[in-house]
Design a protein around this nucleic acid. Sequence first.
RNA 1: UGGGAUAUGGUGUAAUUGGCAACACAACAGAUUCUGGUCCUGUUAUUUUGGGUUCGAGUCCCGAUAUCCCAACCA
Length: 584
Amino acid sequence: MKETNEEPRTESISFVEEIVKTELEAGKNGGRLQTRFPPEPNGYLHIGHAKAIAIDFGLAKKYGGVCNLRMDDTNPQKEDMEYVRAIERDIEWLGFKWGKVLYASDYFQQLWDLAVNLIKQGKAYVDEQTSEQIAEQKGTPTQPGVNSPYRDRPVEENLRLFNEMNSGNMEPGRMVLRAKIDMASPNMHFRDPIMYRVLNMPHWRTGTKWNAYPMYDYTHGQCDYWEGVTHSICTLEFVSHRPLYDLFVDWAKQAGGDDHPLDDNRPRQIEFNKLNLTHILLSKRNLLILVKEGVVKGWDDPRMPTISGFSRLGYSPESILSFIDKIGYTKFDALNQMSLFESAVRDDLNLRALRVSAVVDPVKLIITNMAEDAVEVYDAVNNPGNEADGTHQIEFSRELWIERDDFMEDAPAKFFRLGPGKEVRLKNSYIIRCPETDCCRKDADGRITEIYAELIPDTKSGQPNSNMKIKGKTIHWVSCRHCVEAEVRNYDRLWMVENPRDEISAYSKEHGVEGIDAMRPFLNPESLEVKTAYVEKWLTTRKPLDYLQFQRIGYYNVDPDSTPEHMVFNRTVGLKDSWKKNEN
RNA sequence: UGGGAUAUGGUGUAAUUGGCAACACAACAGAUUCUGGUCCUGUUAUUUUGGGUUCGAGUCCCGAUAUCCCAACCA
């Protein structure tokens, strides 16, 4: 039933992009597109941020707009310059360019002036209750709140106290500035939200100028508006903040004498589903615990779901972006499978990784009909999928290292590797054959120490007999005299459970423990296996973050700490293995 | 009867906006292979539920159900 007109499937775009595109085409905002990526510099960026980055920067790039990087630095208690630099590095590594680097703290004066204006209009007041009292009066989602006794104090008193809040003489917690909205609103965010609190601590950018600092809800929308952001894209948990976001923008517009209709010339907040991944824990608070408790070696530990961690593991920026593209932007609270991510990584690495030989669990193989001092040199293809990647040289000699599990004395029928009387091809080299008897030597424990085989003449790649049909597969090897030792770090998932976030919080509630104690039961004790491998000498020419494939084993990446003298390789992801599956 | 959001194979996402439910991952089977990888072919499996409107409903209407978000002086 195939019709002739098989039109190319029209590109399907996310609902977010649909909105942006439609408004752009309608000429809204003067046909201008401006987004922003607003991280709080209190930790490293993780894969969830990458999803936000991809749409914030991606849309701006695709539709000729601009995306600014704005540090959401309204809480000096948790933030640090170290994080700002790391955030910039990670965004660049992903391949995106920002318009400007801005800071919420750039707007502290403007926000202050607006707050004063709002006090004068009777829209804000200073509350002297304790945080417990305020929480109590706020009510619950099912019960309306009640007004603060300070709600109707005179404007002059509000102004005086607000100034005192910022004087440096006010103890933190003594008073806050609240917006006067509606304590009975079904939307909790409307129950007189706190605009300013006293922290009395220096800010790493503004120094000691401020002692009272604005809250997120009072900051974000106005910053967007003042900057000219047209689309403020964020995650779903902010849906219920949107009415407040819009209200504060209204107030800022009015205070600034902006008489445009309220639905024009203003940022529009759009929310998408945040990223959830199986076997991954994504929350800066919890990631910080892993770092501080030494469970991992740092924010860029290859087991961390941070951008820098994935980078060090060997995931390419392209593979991360490709994965994000596959999962899409919707409003559904999805749990994505890690296998989809890994398949995106393998897809990309298959194109770019150079093929090399490394023997990770070595056993010696002796080619009995080869002379002690003979050496042959071959050209090994770097990437069968891309001839332009060229070749590199490898050496072959009498004594080789091969993988221990490429030999079995008593093998199942479908084991197509080495064993008594069996033949295999040595990658890039000869076909070899093990004798029927006495094909290996063992130590006192019965562990194989040496395997013997003879090469079959003229079967080398390119030689007359090279097409000889054998039952065996092709195995990889390195020459004992021509290889070097290297440290190989095989990483495995950090979490043994599919959904660590839920498991941890359930465990935490049940046992009344928090932090690392609630996490420990779910951590994989074998998340890192360090091995010494024999690798071909050519690898000493490889540089940190180079993409490699250890043939028949997996994709590996050169660790940043690796040197030619002591090479370190991180396992990015294993190759698919349809043999291992057969075993069980 | 607090408010808000969501629901399509095992998983995630599409469906020209009311017109043959498709793509990817996963799983399984086979072919090719000097990587038990890649490439290629095939198989299994989907509209939460009950009503309604309609020639026709994943899409519209009404009612259930389930999940998520909101009660930080965090963002």
